[in-house]
Design a protein around this nucleic acid. Structure first.
Lengths: 204, 204
DNA sequence: TATGTATGTTAGTAAATGCTAACACCACGG
DNA sequence: CCGTGGTGTTAGCATTTACTAACATACATA
């Protein structure tokens, strides 16, 4: 719980903007939720837009995937994947509300020019570098890009599933899913890609 | 291209609501985009909210996963997974704009009581039934629930990745990713789950 | 021709909303 | 005791927005 006036206003902003989006929230609403007069809000943040920007700067959490890949990889595929998944999920959890805000305001703060939108491509690159290195070591022989996308998609999807439909995920949390996923990947890594199977989809 | 007045208004609504959310769009804007007077909009749809509902009813596409599982499964894990993935992606693509609208308006049309929010749990159930059947046949021995969630998460994530960050996915489309994914699953299906590997994450 | 139907136009209303001005209150330090 | 800084309150302004009323126009069909 924050005690300063600015802190309370920022907290209320985060909560409301993430729930309803920028346009649907009024300054009066924010002030009320912060337990503060509307006037005070404007005295501190000048205008609604600047309040939004201040809120964004305050609560955005820049992921540190670079450090993860540089310093915490063991070159054990299964254990490394688990770490990557955990780092990803933790990061998304920290940014959850900011992320929701962005989803609800695509045209306001363009989704293609924020830390949150840049980091998937950065992570993909890091993943591909890592997998290439593992491939050279012979730990893994499948397609690097396909895998990087797989890891990204699975993690993103897992996070979104929890967000949109919590009861879909069993009570034990996502730890088990991640452990299973990592195990699955490390087994799959021993096999090359099969071709000629793409005909199944034309039949549908 | 629709030619009727109502059709043009509905089309414009879908486009704008999905881009900006309910509150951020004005009736004037919709009328303009539809090439129609604002008055005409109200004559046809009474009020903004009813226009939104009409738009929703018009464009929602109810997925038919039931038919897929009842009639198109070959009991070949790899080929079946490919079909399921294709059906999922097709369905999400058809509902993409409605889905965006919902993301941007969580509190307006509550996300927990619409066809779009019900279908993931329905699909999970169908997936678990299918996998259980395959397990009985000996085609597969891993954990059923973990797999169902895996398939859901991967597909949801793949869709969201394309939505949020198109250039992340290579030009060849998602067909290759799905084929690789199905192949990976069908190989993994031959192995049980490993335990005692969850320690890797506590170290981070 | 006459009548009805769908649409456009113009003007406007009531409410909401972002934001400002002016003034009062209160606590704290000198 | 006085001044200062942060806050609340009240009133209000300008704009936007959902929505209406009234009238005009074009077109088709009887």
């Amino acid at each position: 719980m924050v005690s300063t006036t600015e802190g309370k206003i920022l907290e209320a902003s985060l909560s409301l903007f993430s729930q309803k989006g920028y346009d649907a929230v009024t300054t009066k609403e924010i002030a009320h939720k912060a337990g503060v007069s509307e006037m005070t809000l404007f005295r501190h943040f000048v205008c609604k837009r600047k309040l939004f920007e201040a809120m964004y700067e305050t609560y955005i959490f820049n992921p540190h995937f670079k450090v993860l890949f540089e310093r915490h990889m063991e070159e054990n595929l299964e254990r490394d994947i688990i770490k990557i998944c955990y780092c990803y999920q933790e990061n998304m959890l920290k940014n959850q509300k900011i992320f929701m805000t962005q989803l609800r305001n695509q045209d306001f703060v363009s989704i293609s020019d924020t830390p949150l939108s840049r980091f998937p491509s950065e992570l993909k690159r890091l993943l591909m570098d890592y997998l290439s290195k593992m491939k050279k070591k012979g730990c893994f022989i499948a397609d690097v890009e396909s895998w990087a996308v797989n890891i990204l998609a699975y993690n993103f999807g897992l996070f979104m599933l929890c967000l949109v439909n919590k009861q879909l995920i069993s009570g034990t949390g996502i730890d088990n899913y991640i452990a299973d996923y990592a195990k699955q990947l490390s087994i799959r890594s021993q096999f090359p890609i099969a071709n000629g199977l793409r005909t199944a989809m034309e039949e549908n």
